[in-house]
Design a protein around this nucleic acid. Structure first.
Lengths: 146, 146
DNA sequence: ACCTTGACGGACCTGTATGTCTACTATAGG
DNA sequence: CCTATAGTAGACATACAGGTCCGTCAAGGT
């Protein structure tokens, strides 16, 4: 599992909201069905996104969830950080104690590269990419993975 | 947490073995101390690496663990795959049911990119990079992360 | 006003990853 | 042959992410 279950739910939920048409908010039941999240777990996931100000919630009759900003302004990094999967500021996996840029441990570079790789991906990918007719992945990417 | 705890232990243990000098195997107690792994958990971690044929174990008096091949022939990908963190063949986080290259879901490309990013890193990084006097990370990497 | 809808928030349960302990087996050396 | 050493294997314990449940609160509709 590359991401935690909750992070995966959050990404799917945000994608659902991004492609939701109309101005009326989306109810948790709809989210659960469309994003394939356990019905009773939706509120847990969404509350984190509300606290992170990525999503607005509206109570009562006609209530539900809606994006707090334009899809292209919401990066995956923001979503992942809202769900406890902190990429930034993570300690070095190899450093025992004091390991930073000044005192790099032998494998510090490898670790930094991985973080940079994930961080760049998460920071560059936004919900704007969500579209039912998005272009297919380039051949290079399709064939690179075994 | 970017990696699972066990995966992190495995990487550290392999790094310790890679920089271990001499022909005699390294005892589990030494590994536990040097790689900062709970003493009684070392055998659990190492057994996976033994099964994956990345490490040789020797029982009895004078026994211990040693790398099964040259450090430069051991990639992080092999180590991670040995510890249940399968990067390859992972299903798409966004696909609900049938989602592949032929029938990509709207966010399939983003997911593929992340997998490719991690896979490339893991596949290109080997234990050969382990050295107490490895060069520092390029400035670009050092400054890219917030 | 009252009722229905639906998010909020906390208590609580559960399963998996992690960690600990112990009896067993293999090897080397005296 | 006996003993100390050191990995093996599996039972058992624990912590925490994941998941369920329910009472509360807010907003419309009638």
């Amino acid at each position: 599992m590359l991401l935690t279950q909750t992070a995966e739910y959050a990404l799917r939920a945000m994608a659902c909201l991004a492609c939701h048409e109309g101005d009326d908010p989306m109810r948790s039941k709809e989210l659960a069905d469309n994003a394939n999240i356990p019905a009773h777990y939706v509120s847990k996931v969404m509350r984190r996104l509300v606290v992170a100000k990525l999503v607005h919630s509206k109570r009562g009759h006609g209530g539900g969830f809606s994006l707090a900003k334009a899809p292209e302004d919401i990066t995956f990094l923001q979503i992942l950080n809202a769900t406890d999967l902190f990429i930034e500021g993570e300690r070095c996996a190899f450093g025992l104690g004091n390991c930073d840029h000044q005192n790099p441990c032998p494998l510090h570079n490898a670790w930094t590269e991985l973080k940079l790789c994930m961080w760049t991906w998460a920071n560059q990918t936004t919900l704007a990419g969500y579209s039912p007719d998005a272009p297919e992945a380039p051949e290079a990417i399709k064939n690179a993975l075994p």
